[in-house]
Every structure is written in structure tokens, then in C-alpha cells.
Design a protein around this nucleic acid. Sequence first.
DNA 1: GCATTATTGATAATTCTTACTGAATTTAGT
DNA 2: ACTAAATTCAGTAAGAATTATCAATAATGC
Lengths: 131, 131
Amino acid sequence: MNYSQQRNCIKNIVMENPIHPTAEQVYEIARRSYPKISLGTVYRNLNQLAEHGMLKKICSSYGSVRFDGRIDAHFHMVCSECERVFDVELDEMLRLNDKIRTKYDFAVSEYEISIKGTCGDCLAKREATVV
Amino acid sequence: MNYSQQRNCIKNIVMENPIHPTAEQVYEIARRSYPKISLGTVYRNLNQLAEHGMLKKICSSYGSVRFDGRIDAHFHMVCSECERVFDVELDEMLRLNDKIRTKYDFAVSEYEISIKGTCGDCLAKREATVV
DNA sequence: GCATTATTGATAATTCTTACTGAATTTAGT
DNA sequence: ACTAAATTCAGTAAGAATTATCAATAATGC
């Protein structure tokens, strides 16, 4: 992955704006520095940066995909009214609702964990292909 | 929410096919019973059923939104290769990766929790509006 | 500097989802 | 059952989010 001014700018925007921005939001900010930057460039770079593990892609289940400059293990709370995304640090998930209510002043209505990885079938298929 | 044959069919499809189907998949199955059913009808009903808590909407971060007939608390694993969605039951999240690897034969690359609810600001705003 | 390769901006195309409309179904009251 | 009111439907158009295409530009290695 080459260096490019635009890509660098896009990465910095996500790093420096911990609002879990959408591509559109990144685009708006990037235009201040690069007025001619294309929305396609923003999408392309956000996805490439995410593929290279420099950003995280998060689906907030409201509207667009969002991006996160924090790549360490942490979770997200999404407000169903303002749709903002907040960070959560918890070492366990027991009594989740009460804990979050008291610790973060956030009334949990539901939560959703999605674990990404490779399933047993695909792991086996992968080995079969190699052999 | 009224009864309708199509809505009933759509609900049953999601209940009876625990593959976390997309709207498109539900549509394909529904057409076997209702060849003239419209994709719009499928989307409308899936969303209405989800709003009424009879289904759960899940974002798999691969392509389309998916729907789940299981509405009790459980989590999801998404395979990054075949993109299928699997159910997970875990009473805690500590040592998540190892546990899932041994219990489900699924190699976790990353996981993402999104907690839905209402943030403190919006709770306050809500009260202010009432008063 | 110059050639090679990667990246960009601009735009078109795609994909997923929602909105609109008149016709058909369903519901509820008689 | 019959009818009126409300809901839902199929079909289609429109919208939003995202990706693909491609000639022009910028970055990298020599």
C-alpha cells in the first residue's frame, strides 16, 4: 500500500475524530484539505485501510457503515435516538444492562454481538485445498 | 398489525429457516408459495415484524441486513469466507476467542458488540420535553 | 529525471432498500 | 353472509449507499 496525501489525510481524520464517522462525514472533513477529493476515493481508502487493519469498520444498524480509528478490543453503544456511537470498555458481559446503565448512563434496549472469523467448514475446505 | 397471508408466510419463513436470511432470500422462498409476491412486500413485512419484536434485524457487515426468528438473547458469528451467520450462546465474554474456537470450531478474527439503547443526553432531553 | 506502478477525480453503474399507487384482502359491525 | 373502512398487496419508480471504470495525475525506485 503506497503512501498518498489523500489516504494519509483520510486515516488521520478517522484517528483524530473519535465520532465513528461515516464515509460521508470523512468526505466532508477531507474536503477542507482537499476540495477536489472524490467520495469514491474516500470509500476506497477507508476500505483499504480497514483491510490492512489500520481502521475498523463498524455497522451501526442505522444507515451507513461507520469507521473507527481505535483498533483495540472495545465495544460500541449506539443511541437509537441520536444515532451516535459510543465506546464501551467492559471486561465481562454479565449483568450487562445494569452495568452499562450505571457506568455509562445509557439505557440498553438490546445488544448484538457479531463475531467475525472463519467457520469450521471453511477451515477444513482451506486445508483440503492446500493438500 | 393485521393478519395477512403474505405476512404470515414471511414470518414463518424466518422462523423455520434459521439461516439468518436476507430479504432477498426470504423473497426467493416466499415465491414458492406466493409466486406474485413483491420484494417490496417482503421488505415491508420484515421491517414491521422486527419493529413489533417478532423478529430481530441483524447487520452482518457483509452485504445486506439479515433477519433472525430467534429473539432471545444470543450472539452471532459471521464467517468471513462463506458469510453465513451462526448462533452463539455464551454466559460471559472472557477468553472469548479460545472458548469459541474449542466450543464451536470457529476461528475468531475479531468481534464486535453493538449495544442499542438510549444515551444519557437523549434520556435527559426526553424528560425535559415531558416537563 | 525517467519509467513503472499505484492512486486519483469524475462519473457511471450497482446494489440494497424504501416510497408510491391503484387494486385486492382483511377486519369488524350488522 | 354483506358491507364499509382500513389495511395490505403487487408492481414499479425513486432513493441512498457503495462500488466499478478509466483517463489523468502522483508516487516510487532506479
